[in-house]
Design a protein around this nucleic acid. Structure first.
Length: 202
DNA sequence: GGTAGGATGGGCT
DNA sequence: GCCCATCCTACCC
């Protein structure tokens, strides 16, 4: 059992579900602004502490680089939907689709600070020895939250999978750096983290 | 603290 | 047939 000393979320509380227009913007802008927001799926929720921007036809690291395919289709669709893909034969990663309908863009959610439903996350991720390992990676957080490809195309503005604002939290500093796990366009500074968070991936 | 290697299967050339 | 937007374990300081 992971102990959770001093994990009270302070006086911060959940705000409204982010509206469609939040996502209908430049991908980099959305990637930065998603930090500190809360992703909720069913009984589990966590604060987004790490994101990566994946652009469209100009970004060789993006699944949208080669145009519309069965897999990349969602990235070209309307903003505010989930793009969930299967990777390395074992894991799934979740993105938030950005930009207007017809233009590709997505933000990979790379790490969460677990906020509620922690017991359930723990059951789903027995390998995690510490709270900060529960959702500190794109494959880890989908496992912890029970997110699979069934949710590909799901709408983040209503239903069991949503992203909400968080009010009353301390301000934080954003750090930008190179994206992780890719080789093409690896030096583009499109990974964003909350500077002082211990819940980011390594 | 750190890293090397293996697991495992879908997407696309 | 090769390439992955990864994670875990074993092993080594």
């Amino acid at each position: 059992m992971i102990s959770t000393p001093n994990m009270a979320p302070g006086n911060a509380h959940l705000g409204p579900i982010l509206p469609r227009r939040f996502y209908d913007r430049a991908t980099v802008e959305v990637a930065r602004e998603l930090l500190g927001k809360v992703m909720v799926h069913g009984a589990t929720g966590g604060i987004i502490v790490e994101t990566e921007a994946y652009l469209g036809l100009d970004d060789q690291a993006s699944h949208a680089f080669r145009g519309i395919t069965p897999r990349s289709k969602v990235m070209f669709g309307p903003p505010g939907r989930a793009y969930v893909y299967f990777i390395y034969g074992m894991y799934e990663c979740i993105n938030v689709v950005t930009e207007r309908d017809g233009k590709a863009g997505a933000v990979l959610i790379r790490a969460l600070e677990p906020l509620f439903g922690i017991d359930l996350m723990q059951v789903r991720r027995p390998a995690a020895k510490r709270l900060r390992d529960l959702a500190s990676g794109p494959g880890k957080l989908t496992l912890a939250m029970g997110i699979t490809r069934v949710l590909n195309g799901a709408d983040f503005t209503h239903g069991s999978l949503v992203i909400r604002d968080r009010r009353g939290a301390k301000p934080f500093e954003i750090v930008a750096g190179p994206r992780i796990g890719i080789t093409k366009c690896a030096d583009w500074p499109l990974r964003f983290t909350i500077a002082e968070s211990e819940f980011v991936s390594k």
